[in-house]
Amino acid sequence: MTAISGDPTIISHDIDVASHHPDGSPRAMGFFTDTSICIGCKACEVACKEWNLVPDDGLSFTGDSYDNTGSIGCNSWRHVAFIEQGRPVAVSDPEAGDGLRWLMSSDVCKHCAHAACLDVCPTGALFRTEFDTVVVQQDICNGCGYCVSACPFGVLDKRREDGRVWKCTLCYDRLRGDLEPACAQACPTKSIQFGPVDELLALARERVDTLHQRGVGDARLYGADRDNGVGGFGAFFLLLDQPEVYGLPPDPVVSTRRLGQMWGAAAAAAGALALGVAAAFLGERR
């Protein structure tokens, strides 16, 4: 066998995409979306729709570069952002001059380690799978819409005509069959990599270092930190600019992290209410 010569690279890096250990036990799986090699082809958007039978999102021209999807939604579980900027990708290259760069990034549900949607779901429709992903059970969801407000990324979305909430399942059904999610399988340049989260994390850190060495100083990981506001993403990113430029919150915090505070305030308020009622009767004769 003649292997392709040269050093292994991030795109030919062969990660075992089986979602189960050889002994059959599930592994924590996720995505690493490396936007430095995204070509903005939108194969992820389409492959996702084909597999998950997601309805089309209507024909609306936005004029926002080549993005006519706009954002993640109930009918677009992947969304490729396009950002045109008047500066070159690598700053270390003195000859690159006043280049352009066209950032492209495929956004997806982050499958937060500490997921607000999951926390607030009152029916148990949302649950954490054996692969550490967060999935909506469509036979359970009653469309209360709480998760929609809770998600700090605007991922969860209610499909009006259907009434339920839809989002990326990280192809839960495919994972149960040890198949790669549809978007990652389709991605032509493997900008979307699927695999065990710990392996992806190591890969991602290595990749940032490589890019920094190549002068791409803007390269940064987003969502890779395990103790960020949502406990780290199951689907994290390598970005070339601030997250908000891609329509992502720069420092998302799961609201339920402060639930204690809130219940505390509510308890105090409730107590005050009880006291207030009691006070209203002060001086009243029995």
Partner: peptide, 25 residues
Amino acid sequence: DLGRPARFHHMLRVLKVTSPMSVGT
């Protein structure tokens, strides 16, 4: 207000202290 009103009773499948809506229900 539910997307699937017929499934309102799903609210009683679980009790989740992390969900004010569940607690509230």
